[in-house]
Design a protein around this nucleic acid. Structure first.
Lengths: 212, 212
DNA sequence: ACGGTTATTGGTCGCATGACCAATTGCTTT
DNA sequence: AAAGCAATTGGTCATGCGACCAATAACCGT
């Protein structure tokens, strides 16, 4: 962690410090929830005085909003890299399969919690709300692109890639709505629902998107 | 509203006062959000001192949890009355159709917000969490019963009513996750998704659940 | 009519938050 | 080496929260 000492003062370039703050805030928001992203909490995450965080973010709302964007942006890039590294090997089918494997894994739980968190908090915080809407559209577009690509290679059959992307995300968000309350009874019917819906939306045979 | 006067003291039977408090708390939770259900807010909703609310709810957590249960319980009873008033006229198909009409209407928005709110807050509040799980199962069972009834009259064709009920609710919850952030782009593909899924789950022809 | 029970008042306490600010000190430029 | 800029400190302030409690007054049974 950070040194416990009497706080030797460290001076950094504003840009660097700013991203450092946002990154720390994103970490807190992802693991503990966005309501824990406070000036004080982020400050001692960095071993710094609360006033400093307040200096970079005169309004705490912006900090929360940027923390959310930072976290979800990073997650999206890990789920669906914008440019596939190896176009020959990373087919749309393979990428989508990997996507469902990842979003079904327990590592995605904190991300589910974050989305739930942000969508609720958007009720009270307009700034956050704007960021959430942006990210929702971004995620949706990223999936749409993937579907469109797969349609061109005849892997998928889909008339309206945008609508398909929207519906796939609805299924994922619906399933992850229970992340904090999951009763075991519901687990089974839910587990593969998003994957199944995706298969029908894309004209794939059942099981085509199961992890290989 | 309540009188503004120097608060003539009114004494009520404990049971009555208690339900009065819970009802007021439910109203606040439904319209303003569960984080607004505070001792003070509920107290002046009733024109009463905060200490009184604290007297009936030594832990504020229970108040929030009971407010949620009260609100969702009432809503469920209005959506799917436990005993159909007229068994000859209220067929399962009709009831389900009405259910989708109501859940799609704007009057349901506050309920969607409440569920989203509660599911997120459950992350931090174990007592609320238990109540949410109970209500989730209750809503699910109520739909399962309806499906089972419709299966007996050969209206629906469905092997696993429980799984069908779960998936229908996932679709509804998925769609209502965007209640606070809805970008218009997504509105169209989402609108009828739950209804469509229900139709396929129950072996109904497309449009069978559209409002008549 | 009266006394006792208890629902209700009206206040206090400690804590956490965001906002704000003067003083300090590290770094860069001259 | 000196000066100036600004990143950083370390504190204050008002607000809203839950918890707690002694005093009060409304209602009941006698």
């Amino acid at each position: 962690m950070t040194s416990r000492g009497p706080s030797k003062r460290v001076r950094k370039a504003p840009a660097e410090r700013r991203t450092e703050i946002v990154t720390a805030a994103a970490r807190v928001g992802l693991t503990e929830g966005l309501e824990c992203v406070t000036l004080r909490r982020v400050a001692d995450e960095l071993g710094v005085q609360p006033g400093l965080v307040g200096h970079y973010f005169p309004s705490a709302d912006r900090l929360v909003a940027e923390a959310f964007t930072s976290a979800t942006m990073a997650e999206l890039d890990s789920l669906l890299p914008d440019e596939p590294a190896d176009p020959g090997h990373d087919t749309p089918l393979r990428t989508l399969r990997r996507f469902f494997t990842l979003t079904s894994s327990a590592d995605f739980d904190n991300v589910s919690r974050l989305w739930l968190n942000a969508r609720h908090l958007s009720r009270y915080r307009p700034v956050l709300r704007d960021h959430v809407v942006d990210q929702e559209l971004l995620w949706c577009r990223r999936i749409e692109q993937l579907i469109t690509a797969g349609t061109r290679t005849r892997t998928f059959r889909c008339d309206d890639p945008w609508a398909a992307a929207v519906r796939i995300l609805v299924a994922i968000d619906g399933a992850s709505a229970y992340i904090n309350t999951s009763a075991d009874h519901r687990a089974a019917p839910i587990a593969h629902m998003a994957r199944t819906i995706a298969e029908t939306e894309l004209g794939l045979p059942p099981g085509a998107l199961e992890p290989s």
